[in-house]
Computed example of a mutant assay.
Amino acid sequence: MDITSWFDINNTFVVIPIGGGYAMSWIEMIGTLFGLLCIWCASQEKIINYLFGLINVTLFGIIFYQIQLYGLLILQLFFFCANIYGWYAWSRPDAMNGEALKVRWLAKDKLIKTSVISVIAIMLLTVFIDPFFSVLASLAVGVLNTFGASITLSALDPDAFPFWDAAITVLSVVAQILMTRKYVENWILWVVINIISVGVYAAQGVYAMSIEYVILLFIALNGTKEWIQTAKANTSELEYRERVL
């Protein structure tokens, strides 16, 4: 069998008896597996999560290319870059104290700024989501055609859930950035993102992905609990050092 066939979304791994039957391809199965491994290892603060994340977003990027979801393809490119940066940031000693990044909470001023920027971004994207993703799709097609893809961009239908779609997109970007800096709040955002995603995918009849996000929700809840405990321990250690010094 040609190795490229493993990357074809029509190469079915299993038909899941949900709705009218959902044909899960090999690439989706493997990509999903690495995505779950990535999130679980991140919740355990294991740096290998970024290797799994790079594999996940690469495979999902190939999927989105094949099903012509170019906006999501661009988002995978962001996640790819964020995973590379996160791997670097988690393994590099901090410039201030020479130690690796530690799990901690956002400072109050940073939390307020992040919240305000996120709300504004969600509001703007909700209003302009259709033209925004149209531009992204055109950009992606233009780049791919530069490399000889010969793709014709079809007319995009209006977004089915503009507010929730905007919220998922913006919060995913913010959560990924916070994760690379080991802020506890990233897991709280992933919990919110996964709850929204479960509802959106179920409403659209994509039940397999809805079930996947239920699993991700429980991993995110566990990550929240684990990182809160770690942040408390790190805070206690810092306070002890300050008293000793």
Score class of each variant (00 low, 15 high):
Val14Leu: 15
Met24Ile: 09
Tyr240Ser: 15
Gly148Ala: 04
Tyr201Pro: 03
Ile188His: 12
Ile55Pro: 01
Ala137Leu: 07
Ile48Ser: 11
Phe7Met: 11
Val192Asp: 02
Gly148Gln: 05
Phe7Leu: 15
Asp159Gly: 09
Pro158Gln: 06
Tyr50Thr: 04
Trp40Gln: 01
Ala137His: 03
Leu111Ala: 15
Gln204Ser: 12
Met123Asn: 10
Pro93Asn: 03
Ala220Tyr: 00
Pro93Met: 03
Phe78Ala: 08
Trp40Phe: 09
Ile9Gln: 10
Trp164Ala: 09
Lys225Cys: 11
Ile120Gln: 08
Thr114His: 09
Asn11Thr: 14
Ala166Pro: 03
Met96Leu: 15
Arg92Val: 06
Ala149Asp: 07
Met209Ser: 13
Trp227Glu: 01
Tyr50Phe: 14
Ala23Phe: 04
Asn194Ala: 01
Leu111Cys: 14
Gly223Lys: 00
Leu156Phe: 07
Phe34Tyr: 05
Ile193Lys: 00
Ile62Val: 11
Asn145Tyr: 05
Ile62Thr: 06
Glu239Asp: 12
Gly20Cys: 04
Leu171Pro: 06
Gly53Pro: 01
Val116Thr: 08
Phe64Asp: 06
Ile30Gly: 03
Asn11Pro: 03
Leu75His: 09
Leu216Arg: 04
Lys113Asn: 13
Leu189Ile: 13
Leu245Gln: 15
Met123Val: 15
Ile84Asp: 04
Arg181Met: 13
Phe52Thr: 00
Leu124Pro: 08
Leu189Phe: 10
Thr4Asp: 14
Ser43His: 00
Met96Trp: 10
Asp8Gly: 04
Val173Tyr: 13
Ile67Cys: 09
Asn56Glu: 08
Trp26Asn: 05
Val200Asp: 06
Ala233Asp: 10
Asp159Phe: 08
Gln204Ile: 04
Ile55Met: 07
Leu54Asp: 07
Leu54Lys: 06
Phe80Trp: 14
Trp90Ile: 00
Lys102Leu: 10
Leu156Ala: 12
Met29Lys: 07
Asp130Lys: 09
Val214Arg: 01
Thr180Trp: 05
Gly20Arg: 10
Gly20Thr: 09
Gly35Cys: 03
Val173Trp: 12
Ile9Lys: 10
Asp159Asn: 13
Ile18Trp: 12
Gly21Ala: 05
Ile62Lys: 02
Phe218Ile: 08
Ser150Phe: 10
Gly53Gln: 02
Met96Glu: 14
Leu72Cys: 10
Ile67His: 08
Val214Ile: 12
Lys110Gly: 08
Val198Asn: 05
Thr180Ser: 15
Tyr207Asp: 06
Asp8Ile: 05
Phe128Arg: 02
Asn10His: 13
Asp2Gln: 12
Met29Phe: 15
Ala175Cys: 07
Leu189Lys: 01
Tyr85Ser: 09
Glu239Arg: 12
Lys46Phe: 01
Thr12Cys: 09
Ile67Leu: 09
Asn234Gln: 11
Leu216Gln: 05
Met179Ala: 13
Lys232Thr: 06
Ser154Leu: 14
Leu221Ile: 11
Ile219Cys: 00
Phe218Glu: 07
Ala208Asp: 08
Ile196Asn: 07
Val135Cys: 11
Val103Gln: 02
Leu33His: 04
Ile168Pro: 02
Ser154Val: 13
Asp2Pro: 14
Trp90Thr: 00
Gln76Glu: 14
Tyr183Cys: 03
Phe64Val: 09
Leu178Cys: 07
Leu238Ser: 13
Ala100Asn: 15
Val191Met: 07
Ile112Asn: 08
Glu226Ser: 11
Trp190Phe: 12
Pro162Thr: 06
Ser91Ala: 13
Trp6Asp: 07
Arg243Asn: 14
Met209Cys: 10
Thr180Leu: 06
Val14Gly: 08
Leu153His: 03
Ser172Lys: 04
Gly223Leu: 00
